[in-house]
Nucleic acid binder design. Structure first.
Lengths: 214, 214
DNA sequence: GCCAAACTTTCGGCAAACCGAAACCTCGCT
DNA sequence: AGCGAGGTTTCGGTTTGCCGAAAGTTTGGC
């Protein structure tokens, strides 16, 4: 069936998000934590999503999106990221303030309004955090990326994206003028040197939120 | 208590809308028809709204908003009309296309985003149909108005608002270049003469949708 | 190779909105 | 005054999404 309630969209989106920058599959309990619901609620929704052919699931095993599920998930992510881009680009929001608003609007905006926004923005490829905006057909352009916390000392590269999970990290980095496109060299663990020679100490939380070119 | 679900907002808005341009109170059955729900659903919601102090209701009697309910209702109407104004003013919608989108977004947009939109639009006083946009404190500036269908022949005036209930009427009037602000004289029933001397035959449905200065 | 911890599922329940059928008021008309 | 039509409410039931407690499964460590 169609089955496109807001709740189901949130489950699909979260399953998708888990594998966007890493490869392991998500477990029901991890999904429960991410969504802030009880494990039993996940079991229930998983049954519905599997019955609708949007995910695959063997009992007591992890979850994986089907092609149909991934298409549905990327559509939600597309809406979310276009809305975030619009809030920052046109409505005066800062990049640490857009998440909650987008979380709600992504479930109610029409395709038509979304495309009007997309056109106004000039069909952006990335949102303010550097995350790729999926195309309408579900295609996503995702560069090879590495967590800054996992990079070797002396690694040089460009910041690709900052996870928007933690607004405090976003504010910290905005104050340090670090964002997508920033070029750097890792001088020592948690210490980066920018193109202009200035060095910055990033917190461990930030190092685990910043993804850079490999 | 607070009780601000989307469903409750729709009930309050509809009760408010009924008395906006006329004075009689709405009955539960009329409310059911307007909302497209069964009468028994109305009874149930009416109990909750009355228990929350948002409406008054004596069994088997009509419904009336309390001050608290009216404030809640005008807040929804404000969101609806600002969204409509924005869709027409910035997003390329025509005035007959905005209702459904606004109907959904009015329940999910935040106060902050609404005010950002309001500021971009220059704090408009009316929506594209000529309906007054309530102020944030619930105040509404509503001029004395008369239905064109009820006006006497030779009545002269200005179009104040067009009900947005029927998109076909809106398209008909847009084609005839009739809208809020249009000056006219009623030459004969259903026949108006515009300021430039051109005359227009309006359909009975349109005459029951056009409100003019008294 | 077994067992307990950790994870997952099942089960009964709840709240919000909705429904249709049946019971119940009200009011106008005779 | 009484009666019936029409509007309103009650009642039992449905769906969606959530919960906690209890039962079931898996798996790592000994």
């Amino acid at each position: 069936m169609t089955y496109t309630t807001g709740a189901a969209e949130d489950y699909l989106k979260t399953i998708y998000a888990h594998t966007e920058w890493q490869t392991d599959l998500i477990t029901p309990s991890a999904l429960a934590v991410r969504l802030g619901v009880a494990p039993s609620s996940v079991t229930e929704m998983v049954k519905k999503l599997a019955a609708s052919g949007l995910i695959t699931h063997v009992p007591y095993g992890p979850l994986a999106l089907t092609d149909a599920g991934r298409l549905r998930a990327t559509a939600v992510v597309r809406r979310h990221r276009l809305i975030e881009t619009w809030l920052v680009g046109e409505m005066g929001y800062d990049w640490d303030e857009v998440h909650d608003e987008a979380e709600i609007l992504e479930h109610s905006i029409s395709d038509r309004l979304l495309e009007a926004i997309n056109a106004r923005l000039g069909f952006p490829a990335h949102d303010p955090h550097g995350d790729p905006i999926p195309a309408a057909d579900g295609t996503v352009q995702r560069p090879a990326a590495l967590l800054l916390a996992d990079a070797e000392v002396s690694h040089s590269g460009t910041v690709l994206r900052i996870s928007d999970r933690d607004p405090a990290v976003l504010r910290e980095l905005a104050a340090d003028l670090i964002g997508p496109g920033t070029q750097f060299t890792l001088a020592a663990p948690f210490t980066i040197v920018l193109a202009d020679g200035q060095s910055r100490l990033v917190t461990p939380a930030a190092a685990r939120s910043i993804w850079v070119t490999a």
